[in-house]
């Protein structure tokens, strides 16, 4: 039994009192999950690794014709910190492909920031799919060809739970982080099951790995009920928040 894979080790003290969720979870139902956003900085010179860098909430609301996702992500970014609220209408396909969305960005600034006014760099962006194009709305609309298969990073928190735990479980797609940063040629594949030892207790998790252009590999650690427990990239991770456990909405 592996003691702690790198993704968990890199969380450092954050895992101190963390316990796995016990409540029921149905990936196909309406649900809300809360995550702490973590910086995966290794231990160095005696300084502990890991540090909280924000929070993420994913609300999943399936419907007969479309699925609605709301992602609310706050990022600790020093002098000023943004909170993104994305409302995404998604196709009911395997990738929950975004069809129409709004992205609201609000900043909270500390005394060291020198904004002209509190809302100076706030934005409300939006976009939609038109035919085979993605249209990013703005003072001037920006159009780009829609990849054949694509989704948004936030959507993966709802896409991964729908995947079966089997070797044939592979998705290929282009990714848009925050709905605009294009990361092509992604491949998300089931790797297998791992049993870890966390805080003295064994924990069996399934893991998917995602690799592609424009990002370091991500591992999606999923519990037996298909709930994403930990999504970990190179230096950024999202750990299910034990203080705000979610399940059925």
């Amino acid at each position: 039994m592996a003691e702690k894979p790198r993704d968990f080790r890199a969380l450092g003290a954050r895992l101190g009192k963390w316990t796995p969720p016990q409540n029921a979870f149905d990936p196909a139902a309406a649900w809300t999950l809360n995550y702490s956003r973590q910086a995966l900085v290794p231990e160095r010179n005696g300084a502990p690794g890991g540090a909280r860098s924000g929070a993420l909430t994913i609300m999943h609301a399936p419907g007969p014709d479309a699925t609605r996702l709301r992602a609310t992500e706050s990022v600790s970014a020093g002098f000023s910190s943004p909170t993104y609220t994305a409302d995404i209408d998604c196709a009911n396909d395997a990738l929950l492909t975004p069809q129409r969305w709004t992205l609201d960005i609000r900043w909270v600034s500390g005394p060291q920031a020198k904004l002209k006014n509190p809302g100076e760099i706030d934005q409300t962006r939006g976009g939609r799919v038109e035919g085979r194009e993605i249209v990013h709305k703005g003072a001037r609309d920006r159009r780009c060809p829609a990849p054949e298969r694509w989704t948004a990073f936030w959507n993966l928190f709802a896409v991964v739970p729908r995947l079966p735990f089997e070797a044939s479980s592979v998705l290929t797609f282009d990714l848009f982080e925050e709905l605009d940063l294009h990361k092509p040629d992604q491949r998300l594949a089931y790797i297998g099951q791992r049993t870890l030892k966390l805080n003295g207790q064994p924990l069996a998790l399934h893991v998917f790995e995602q690799t592609g252009r424009g990002m370091l590999p991500w591992r999606w650690w999923v519990d037996a009920q298909h709930r994403v427990i930990l999504a970990a990239g190179d230096r950024r991770a999202y750990l299910l928040d034990e203080t705000k456990r979610g399940g059925a909405a």
């Binding site: 910086a39 970014a77 020093g78 060291q112 020198k114 950024r236």
Partner: peptide
Amino acid sequence: RALTSGSGVGEVT
């Protein structure tokens, strides 16, 4: 005129 400073980790901020 500072907008934001970011952090010490590129992937994070």
